[in-house]
Design a protein around this nucleic acid. Sequence first.
RNA 1: GGGCCCGUAGCUCAGCUGGAAGAGCAGUGGACUUUUAAUCCAUUGGUCCAGGGUUCGAAUCCCUGCGGGCCUACCA
Length: 491
Amino acid sequence: MDELMAQRARKIEEFRARGVDPYPPRVTRTHTAAEAVAAVEALPEGAGEADAGSVHVAGRVVARREMGKATFVDLQDASGRLQVLLRQNAVGPDDYSLFGLVDLGDYVGFEGTPMRTRTGQPTVGATSWVMLAKALHAPPEKYHGLADAEIRQRRRYLDLIANEQTREVFRIRSKAVAAIRRFLDSRDFLEVETPVLQEAAGGAAARPFVTHFNALEEDRFLRISLELHLKRLVVGGFDRVYELGRIFRNEGLGFRWNPEFTMLETYEAYSDYNGVADMVETMVSSVAQEVLGRTTVTWRDHEIDLAPPWHRLTMRDALLDHSGIDLFEVRTEAAMRTELTRRGVTAAPTSGYGKLVDEAVSHFVEPHLIQPTFLLDYPVELSPLAKRKPEDPRFVERFEVFIGGFELGNAYTELNDPIEQRARFEEQVRLKAAGDDEAELMDEDFLFALEHGMPPCGGFGMGIDRLVMVLTGQASIREVILFPQLRSQKG
RNA sequence: GGGCCCGUAGCUCAGCUGGAAGAGCAGUGGACUUUUAAUCCAUUGGUCCAGGGUUCGAAUCCCUGCGGGCCUACCA
C-alpha cells in the first residue's frame, strides 16, 4: 500500500546487505552547520581546498542535486543549513554509489574540508560520509513546505522540519522565557513551584478540569491560577516570588485561548500596583529588546511600540470615553444591564454587576487598546482578591494590561486584610449559589494564612503565550504552542 | 454551542453548470563533476475524508457523520 515507505525500507536492507548500519549509535561531529559555514568564511582570500582543516558535520538531508559524478546535498541541523559537495573522485566509487540509497529526510554525517563553490557558496567538500538514520517517510514538499494547519499542529515535528518561521517562533518563545527569568532573578525574585493538583481551584474566574486521586479516593482540580499559593509564600516571608507554570481552564478554544497555557505570576512585598506597572513595562520592553533586538513589533497590521512608558488610564475614564457609561453613576446590576441593552449588547442573565462591567469594557474599550495600556481601577465586585482604593472603596487598586486589543496581564495591590478577604469570599459564594459557576470558592486554608499577616504586596499575572504572540507577530495562540489542544482523532 | 468555508497522490494544489481523476515537487529508471526551487528524457503513484441518497452516470448535487480553519459565544 505505502509504496514510498516500502522503497525506503528496502534501502535499509540494502545498506545492511552492503555492511552498513543504517542506525549507528554515534557519530563524530566537530562543527554545526553554522560553524562550518563560519569556517569557510574564515578562510583567507584565495585559499585552496587543501589549506583548510577537516570538519565533521551531521544533519538531515533536506535537498539533493545530483549531477552525475557529483552531488550537492543540503544538510540541515538546529543551527541552519549547510551545502555539502560529494564527489566520486573524493569519496571513491563505492561510497559514492552507496549515497544513492540516501533519501530526503535521512540523517547523514560528512567529513570534509571547508571550501567555496564557483559561485562563492560556502560548502563542505566531502571526503567521506556515514549513514546516521534512515527516514521511512519523505519530508514535506521542499518549496511550498507544509501548509495544512491541522498537520502542522498535530505533527509539529513536520512543521519544524519544513518551516523556518515555525522554528523561529519557538526559538523566540524559549529566549523570551529565559529573559523573563533573568529579569526577575536579577531583581531578587525567588522562582518557586506550587501544586498543580488542588483540592479547590481558586485565584481566577474560570472553570477547572477535574481529576481523581485514587490513593486518597478524592477528586482533585487542576489549578486555574497560581495566586493563592504564591501569596501563602509571601506570608511565609519569601517577599519576592514568581512562578512560571502551566495552568488549566476548562474553556473553549479560540485565537487567543488554549485550555492549558503558561502563566507567569509575580508577587512583590512592599510594592503595589503602581510599582508592578513600572516593573511590567520595563520587563516586557527589555525582554523584547533582548530577544528581538528592538521594542517595536507588528501584530495584526498594528505597529506596536513596547518601549515605556505605557499608557495608563482608569477604567472609568476609558469606558466613559468609548461608551458614555459612567461607572461613578451606573452602580447597580439593573442600571448596567439597562445601559448595555440600550447600546445593543446582550449579557448573560446570570451576570452580576461585576461581570456586566467586564462585558462593557470588553465590548467598548478593549478593541481600542492597541498600544500597551494599563487599564486602572476596577470595580470591587470584579476583583475579590484585590485591595480597595482608600479614596473610593467602590474600586480596587487593580490594572489589566492590554496590547493589540487583548488582555495580556492582570495585577493588583493584594488584599491582605483577612477579615475583608473572608467577606469577599462570602460574596463570591453567594454569587456562585446564584448561578455564577466561575465565582471564587471559600478557601479557609488561604484565609488562615492571611490571618498570620501578609505585608503590603503587589501581584501580577501574565499569559506567556499571549506575550509570545505579540513578540512574534502571530495572530493565533496555536502558533506559539508546540502542541495545542485539538479534538482527538477517532478511528 | 451558532454561522460561513475547507477535506482530491507523501507534500503544494487544479479539476467550471454531473460525462474516462490531473499538474508541480517527492519517488523510480536514465544522462550530467560547481548545483542551489539544478536541468533534460522516461515513468510509478488515488478509499477524491467516511457512510447514505439522487442519477443511465457523482470528486462534482443532496443528507448525515468525522476532522480542520475563520468568525462568534463561553472565556478576568
